[in-house]
């Protein structure tokens, strides 16, 4: 009798914990194909709201493919096909009815190579805002300032807002791109190796920024830098040849991985 009660109690607690976890994106059984080639194999990954989830793994294991299917950036690729579910607010993002253009306003993306538009620093922020219907110029510039401040770029650029964005350093450009993405007010940020083209100081700034941003945004971060994952991520997913080998909280992953392959990868024995 006692034992049964205890078990029930445990089960209750367990379900309660499950419910308490606030998921932002719930990926289940996701498979992705490029023509006959399967790049992502039956991947499931619950992504918590207001947290940073890191995707790591050797080159070509499907991290970018996975990430880019969340905001449907791969739609245009010939032979691309995605099966399974990516639930976001109970809607399957892979559904044919989903408008990728509207979706991308909700789920922003930052790329490996900084890609500011060849316009002025200010215009890089105001043009997308204009595109999304913000009519007042004063409002747009106000927003620009807000988001430049948020990424810690304002003090560095406030006297040169009308200079070309391409005159900025790589790290500044990347923060500008993050600001530009934030300005259209997404709730999820997808970042594909955002710091891999940057020096350690610029990288540190980006990491600091991500930690600050996770209070308001859900962040999914692809990185080749294991230390980076260990420093910033709440959860870590280890991809290998299109499959998830291990997905758990970052601390567990780096201190006591369950899988032999994770251990090998962390200790640099392959990849």
């Amino acid at each position: 009798m006692q034992a049964v009660l205890e078990r029930e109690l445990v089960e209750q607690q367990w379900t309660k914990e499950q419910q308490e976890v606030d998921l932002c994106l719930d990926v289940t059984d996701l498979s992705i194909f490029y023509g006959p080639k399967q790049a992502v194999k039956n991947v499931s990954m619950p992504i918590k709201r207001h947290s940073i989830t890191a995707l790591i793994g050797p080159s070509g294991c499907g991290k970018s493919t996975f990430l880019r299917s969340i905001n449907r950036m791969n739609d245009g690729i010939k032979g691309f096909k995605a099966e399974g579910n990516i639930l976001y607010d109970d809607v399957n993002l892979l559904d044919a009815n989903i408008d990728p253009v509207a979706l991308r306003k909700e789920i922003g993306m930052v790329f490996q190579r900084p890609n500011p538009f060849p316009n002025s620093i200010l215009k890089n922020l105001t043009l997308p805002l204009k595109e999304h219907g913000l009519k007042s110029k004063a409002k747009r510039e106000e927003y620009a300032e807000t988001y430049l401040k948020q990424v810690g770029l304002w003090d560095e650029v406030k006297d040169r807002l009308h200079e070309s964005a391409l005159s900025l350093s790589g790290g500044q450009q990347q923060r500008l791109c993050i600001a530009r993405t934030l300005a259209i007010q997404p709730s999820v940020l997808l970042l594909d190796e955002p710091a891999s083209a940057l020096d350690p100081i610029a990288t540190a700034k980006i990491e600091e920024l991500l930690l600050k941003l996770k209070e308001k945004y859900t962040i999914v971060l692809v990185t080749h830098n294991l230390q980076q994952a260990a420093r910033v991520a709440d959860d870590t997913a280890f991809f290998y040849q299109g499959e998830i080998v291990e997905f758990t909280d970052t601390k567990t992953f780096f201190q006591s991985p369950k899988e032999k392959r994770s251990e090998d990868y962390i200790s640099g024995r392959f990849g």
Partner: peptide, 11 residues
């Protein structure tokens, strides 16, 4: 990347 930048911003 410039083109993708535009698309990713919801253009």
């Amino acid at each position: 990347e410039l083109k993708e930048g535009g698309l990713a911003l919801g253009y």
